[in-house]
Structure formats: structure tokens, C-alpha cells
């Protein structure tokens, strides 16, 4: 086996896994806080990436007439500092978007059937996606990544800087979620997930838990959307009208594999699914005529189905206690 190719494949898989982890954490936080499977994740994630592009490439603020004070000097590739500050700014905007969405559409549903909430997120997906399409229309949407498609060479293997950056982002996101879980809010969130009414009775502000879960969840989805935009991920350094809208659906096997409500499960699931997908793509490609073109796309689902048959609640999911 060619060592260089192996290293490159491994790095690619881990980077994809990092994106899956960020997106998956977004799903899990919202699921944990509100028991809703967020069907609007792809639209919200793409909207986040869109904000980033508007901030950095258009040098403007979304829906506001004046320019972005954080954008660096005009006509230059932004420096890493400028880009990062804009990234943080974007995540704040995404979190606010999450709060608004939650306040308007999810909060009124406290105590209502869970599937009604799921359909609301479905409606949100329909309602938000056209804005994304409109904003990407005609002009390409650069994300202004300072390092572009550059790569380091390590023992003949090319390691794209973006892949390392994605891994770092996922690490930070994971740490934030981890410490958040340990905090008072995290405990409150777990209590709400366990039983909304009981948590209310204990004096937990369920509305606030909902709000924070959505803010954090949407910010994480936006982060995943931005990370996935960096070259040489498929969108090649921009927001893609073709690729971004389906990103969230690719993460569903990840969260089921790990267990819908498990943070640690997402991390395992993300890495496992990405490894399976990328390695199957790389090393089984000569069997393409038997496996069918695009076979690696269904590898995650096959892995998921096998795991589910053995462990119906994923690797780390909480089994539902069945009572008469």
C-alpha cells in the first residue's frame, strides 16, 4: 500500500469527520434540548455560511445598508485574524438567527406533540432555503479563506491547511459543548430532555433551555457549513448552491450511529462514518463496476443499518425505558 496515498486519505477522512462532528453536535444539542430532529439544519447551516460570505466577500452586514467594520482592507485576501474575527461574528449572527427561529416557531410549541415541532422545522427548511438560493444566485459566494487551497507537505503527502483548520474547529466546538454540558445549563438541559414538565416543576426555565439549545445548535451548524466550504472540500472555498443544501442529510447516519442524544457518540460516529466513506471510496474504486457508481455515498447508511440491527439505540444512545 502506498503510504503517501494512505496518509492523504486518512487526513481527508478525518477532516470530513470533523465536519460531520460539528454538524452532528448541532443536531444533538437541539435534540437534547428540545427533543426535535431539526429538518431545517441544512438551510440554517447554509444560511450561516452565507452570512460569512456576505461579511467577508461583500464586506457588508446582512440586511443592513452599512458595511462590515470587521472586514479587512479592501481588495486583499483577508488576514487570518480578520477572517477569524468575522467567523466569530458570523457565529454570533447564526446564534441570533437560532434564537429568533426558536422564539417565533418552537417556543409556542412547548408541551405540544414532538412531531408537530418536527414538521415546523420542515416548514422552516422550505421557508429559508429560497433565501439561500437567491443569495447564491448568479454570483459565486467566496468564503475568503486566507489560506485558500494551500497545503503542507509532510513526507511527500500533501496535507491541506483547510483540513487541519476543520479539525481544530471541531476540537474547539467539541470542547465548548463538553464544558457547556458540565455547566448548570447543561444539567438543566438534560433535565428538560428527560421530562419537560418535571423540569418545569423543579423551577427550570424550559423556555431558556430551548433558546440556548437552538442558539448553540444553529451556530454549530453554521460552523460546519463554513468549515465544509473551505477548499479542497467539494465547494472549493465558496458557498455552493449545489453541495451545501444536502450537507445536513449526510450527517443523519452519524447521529444515529452514535445515538441521537449522545455527544460522545457524535464524535465516534463522525469519525467512523467518515473513515468508512472515504476509505471505501479510495480503496474500492477499482470495483466500481460491481458496486455501482457513487457507491461510497451509501456506505454511511450501510454502516448505520448494521449498527442499528445490533444496537437499536446506536452506540451511545439512551435506550427508551419501555413500560406498560
Amino acid at each position: 500500500m502506498d503510504v503517501t496515498t494512505f496518509i492523504q486519505t486518512l487526513v481527508k477522512a478525518l477532516a470530513l469527520g470533523a465536519v460531520y462532528i460539528m454538524m452532528g453536535l448541532g443536531f444533538v444539542i437541539i435534540f437534547k434540548g428540545t427533543q426535535v430532529l431539526n429538518f431545517a439544519a441544512s438551510a440554517l447551516s447554509m444560511a450561516g455560511a452565507m452570512f460569512m460570505s456576505i461579511l467577508i466577500a461583500d464586506r457588508g452586514l446582512p440586511f443592513l445598508p452599512f458595511g462590515n467594520p470587521l472586514a479587512g482592507p479592501e481588495g486583499e485576501t483577508p488576514s487570518i485574524g480578520v477572517w477569524l474575527s468575522n467567523l466569530i461574528f458570523t457565529l454570533i449572527i447564526a446564534a441570533i438567527l437560532g434564537l429568533v427561529v426558536e422564539r417565533l416557531t418552537i417556543r409556542p410549541m412547548i408541551g405540544q406533540p414532538l412531531f408537530a415541532m418536527a414538521v415546523i422545522t420542515l416548514g422552516l427548511e422550505f421557508a429559508i432555503r429560497p433565501f439561500n438560493i437567491d443569495a447564491t444566485a448568479l454570483e459565486g459566494r467566496s468564503l475568503g479563506v486566507p489560506w485558500g487551497a494551500e497545503a503542507w507537505t509532510v513526507a511527500d503527502a500533501l496535507i491541506p491547511k483547510s483540513y487541519v483548520a476543520a479539525a481544530i474547529m471541531a476540537l474547539i466546538a467539541g470542547l465548548v459543548v463538553f464544558f457547556f454540558y458540565r455547566s448548570r445549563f447543561g444539567v438543566a438541559m438534560r433535565a428538560v430532555a428527560f421530562d419537560q414538565e418535571a423540569a418545569m416543576a423543579q423551577g427550570i426555565n424550559v423556555g431558556r433551555v430551548f433558546a440556548i439549545a437552538w442558539a448553540l445548535g444553529v451556530a454549530l451548524a453554521a460552523l460546519a457549513g463554513i468549515a465544509y466550504g473551505m477548499a479542497p472540500f467539494p465547494p472549493g472555498g465558496s458557498v455552493s448552491q449545489e453541495i451545501h443544501p444536502v450537507l445536513a442529510f449526510r450527517v443523519l447516519p452519524v447521529i444515529v450511529l452514535g445515538g441521537l442524544d449522545s455527544v460522545i457518540g457524535v464524535i465516534y460516529g463522525g469519525v467512523m462514518i467518515a473513515l468508512a466513506e472515504v476509505f471505501a471510496g479510495q480503496y474500492l474504486s477499482q470495483y466500481n463496476s460491481i458496486l455501482g457508481s457513487g457507491y461510497s455515498t451509501i456506505v454511511p447508511y450501510l454502516v448505520m443499518l448494521i449498527v442499528l440491527v445490533v444496537r437499536p439505540y446506536g452506540l451511545f444512545g439512551t435506550p427508551e425505558i419501555r413500560r406498560v
Partner: peptide, 28 residues
């Protein structure tokens, strides 16, 4: 070229060492 993951096609292309590539794809 099908599905969302195109690792296999890329591997085959790079491995083939072709000097010319003709593509009938979508921009993405």
C-alpha cells in the same frame, strides 16, 4: 460520477496519469 462522495473517481483519475481530462458533469 454519482452521489455526494467522489473520492473513488478522484483516486482513479489521479492514478491513471492521463494528460487530458474530458468532463461531462455539473459545476459542483
Amino acid at each position: 460520477v454519482a452521489g455526494d462522495d467522489r473520492t473513488g473517481v478522484i483516486a482513479e483519475l489521479v492514478g491513471s496519469g492521463a494528460t487530458m481530462v474530458w468532463t461531462t458533469l455539473t459545476p459542483g
